[in-house]
Nucleic acid binder design. Structure first.
Length: 234
DNA sequence: GCGACAG
DNA sequence: ATCTTGTCGC
C-alpha cells in the first residue's frame, strides 16, 4: 500500500497493516561504511492539517551540512499514539523523494522498533523506502527501563519482556534521556554508536535537531500564525 | 477498571 | 506537536 493512501485507513486497519509489515523488518548489521547521514522531522500547527516535512543532509561523522529538502502537504490522519507513521510518513516521503542524494542512514524523530508491534515511525519509513533508519525519540512510548545515570552517554536497556528493543541514553547532564532504537537495516549497537557521534552539546542529536529547526522556519515562512485566536473563543 | 500514551 | 515568560540550576 502506498503512503498516500494512509489517510483512508481506519485506526484498526492501520494496526492490521503494521502486523503485516512487521514480518519484513530487518535488524541487521550495516556493513557499508557511513559517509552521509540525514535527519528528518515534521512541523505543524495544531489547528491545521498542513504539515511541513524536512530532511537535512550531513557528511558523517564530521556533520558538515550538505543539503536539505522540504515538502508541504496535508494530512487528515489524526495523531494516535502507536500510529504516528500513518500521519507523518506521507509528508516525509515527499521530502525524501526531493533529495538529490539519499543519506547512508536517516535519523527520525520518534521510535524505531521500540514499539508494541516494532513499527515506530523510523522502522515504518525504512520499510517504505528501503533506507537504513534509526529512531531517536524524546520520550518513551513502549518498553521498560531503569533511569540511566546522570552522566553524559550513560545508557540503560529498554525491554519488552526479555527482548531488547531500545536504549535510553543520557546525552547531556541534568537532561532527560533520549530513546534510541534501530529502525531498519541496522542493529542496536550501531544505532547507539551513530547517535552518540551526532551529539554536539545538546540533548538532541544534530541531524534531527537541525531538521526540527528547518521545518519550523518553513512553517513560519509559509505564513503560520502563532495564536490562531480560536482557543480564545472556545 | 485504571494508568500510559512517540509527535 | 505548538504556544509562551519567567525562572531555577549548572
Amino acid at each position: 500500500m502506498h503512503p498516500s493512501q494512509y489517510e483512508h485507513l481506519t485506526p484498526a486497519q492501520a494496526v492490521a497493516y503494521q502486523q503485516q509489515l512487521r514480518g519484513q523488518i530487518q535488524i541487521n548489521t550495516l556493513d557499508k561504511p557511513i559517509t552521509t547521514i540525514g535527519g528528518a522531522d515534521i512541523s505543524f500547527n495544531k489547528y491545521s492539517e498542513i504539515v511541513y516535512a524536512g530532511i537535512v543532509l550531513f557528511s558523517y561523522p564530521d556533520l558538515k551540512l550538505i543539503g536539505n529538502a522540504t515538502a508541504i502537504s496535508r494530512t487528515s490522519f489524526p495523531y494516535i499514539s502507536g500510529l504516528l507513521a500513518f500521519r507523518e510518513v506521507p509528508a516525509l516521503l515527499d521530502a525524501w523523494d526531493k533529495l538529490e542524494v539519499k543519506p547512508d542512514v536517516l535519523v527520525l524523530d520518534g521510535q524505531g522498533i521500540a514499539h508494541e508491534r516494532r513499527l515506530g515511525i523510523a522502522t515504518h519509513f525504512g520499510l517504505v523506502t528501503g533506507a537504513t533508519t534509526i529512531g531517536s525519540a524524546k520520550s518513551r512510548l513502549y518498553g521498560k527501563y531503569e533511569e540511566p545515570a546522570n552522566v553524559p552517554f550513560a545508557q540503560s536497556p529498554m525491554y519488552d519482556k526479555d527482548e531488547l528493543i531500545g536504549i535510553a541514553m543520557r546525552t547531556k547532564r541534568n537532561c532527560n534521556p533520549i530513546y534510541i532504537s534501530p529502525g531498519h537495516n541496522i542493529n542496536m549497537q550501531q544505532s547507539v554508536e551513530v547517535i552518540k557521534n551526532c551529539i554536539r552539546g545538546y540533548r538532541i542529536p544534530e541531524p534531527t535537531r537541525q531538521a526540527h529547526l528547518l521545518v519550523n522556519k518553513v512553517r513560519i515562512a509559509d505564513g503560520d500564525n502563532p495564536n490562531t485566536q480560536y482557543d480564545l473563543f472556545t
